[in-house]
């Protein structure tokens, strides 16, 4: 089937999905106890009943929820996600200012996890009962069970304190001024620890997945065919088998994007990474509804876009899907 057509169909599904996400999040937040007017008033240092009423009037909080929802949706489709109570700025501006660092962090962590994990998995499949294979399994269990913030703190202790090779926090050094190249290098330098922290859980998972699918593929008839035509060991592993093992990896990467975005919230908080995660953390503490809603909306969009990309990549790695429609 035509790629453009598939893309359009997926896109229309995605739009419906985003709408559903908006409605659901909005209702959830309004069902939760707590009155934002109280919070806003608290920020201003206490208030009278009159002032509270005024605040409710200003933010439209006195209207029935369903009407509020209508207004919210109406504005959202025009790109207006409302005004932040806490930062006193348009939510969409706040988010656009923070989304770049998050995308950078998440894609860095994910690519790191995929490359290193796949590499380890292929090595482990070479000797399925060898030392490396055992190490990968152990690493997977540890990586999977250790909480992200703990891993983050450990890495900070080791690589920023005991052996201070990486900065502890932030995304760039404000005192540094050495041109665009220096700036990019500086950001990469700051990126390594957070990306490692976020990626480490997934490295282990990709290594396990790759090992398992490689072992299955290595026993298949077409690998025997490759051997029968004289293909040698490294090429059997690195080309004939790996090229097939990539297929489940792509599927899983697409599915995991959502959980890696939510993992980013913790990592950003630990490393003061100026992304959506820290914004989410701060605005939840501040009961800043519009900002929380906006972030939920944007992360849903991120995940949906990631799934669209996965779908397309999938078509490139698996010819059976490409032509099968």
């Amino acid at each position: 089937m035509d790629l453009a057509l598939i893309f359009l169909r997926r896109l229309s599904h995605a739009v419906l999905l985003v709408l559903a996400v908006l409605v659901l999040n909005f209702l959830l937040i309004h069902l939760a106890p707590g009155d934002p007017a109280d919070v806003i008033a608290g920020e201003m240092g206490g208030a009278t009943e009159e002032m509270l009423a005024e605040i409710r009037e200003l933010y439209g909080l006195n209207k029935p929820v369903i009407v509020q929802l209508g207004i919210y949706l109406g504005r959202a489709v025009q790109g207006d996600l409302g005004q932040s109570f806490f930062y006193n700025a348009p939510v969409s501006e706040l988010i656009l200012g923070r989304i770049g660092p998050t995308i950078l962090l998440v894609t860095a962590a994910l690519s790191f996890a995929i490359f290193v994990g796949t590499f380890l998995g292929v090595l482990a499949s070479y000797k399925p009962k060898g030392f490396l294979s055992g190490f990968v399994t152990l690493f997977a269990v540890i990586g999977y069970s250790a909480p992200i913030f703990w891993t983050g703190l450990m890495l900070v202790i080791v690589f920023a304190w005991l052996i201070p090779v990486f900065p502890i926090a932030g995304m760039y050094d404000v005192t540094l001024d050495n041109g665009p190249v220096g700036r990019v290098l500086d950001i990469l330098h700051h990126l390594i620890l957070p990306a490692l922290t976020l990626g480490i859980v997934y490295i282990a998972q990709y290594a396990r997945l790759t090992r398992a699918s490689m072992l299955e593929i290595l026993g298949s008839d077409y690998i025997r065919t490759a051997r029968a035509k004289g293909v040698s060991g490294p090429k059997i592993y690195g080309y004939h088998a790996l090229r097939n093992a990539i297929i489940p990896i792509v599927t899983i990467a697409g599915l995991q994007f959502g959980s890696i975005v939510s993992g980013a919230v913790l990592v950003e908080t630990v490393f003061s990474w100026p992304g959506l995660g820290t914004l989410a953390f701060d605005s939840i503490l501040a009961r800043d509804y519009p900002t929380v809603l906006g972030i939920l909306f944007f992360s849903a969009v991120l995940v949906i876009v990631a799934n669209l990309i996965t779908d397309i990549v999938y078509r490139f790695v698996d010819p059976r899907i490409r032509t099968g429609g």
Partner: peptide, 11 residues
């Protein structure tokens, strides 16, 4: 081989 359906690399 005996199994033409699975003896060629699908990708």
């Amino acid at each position: 081989f005996q199994e033409p359906m699975t003896s060629l690399n699908p990708v």
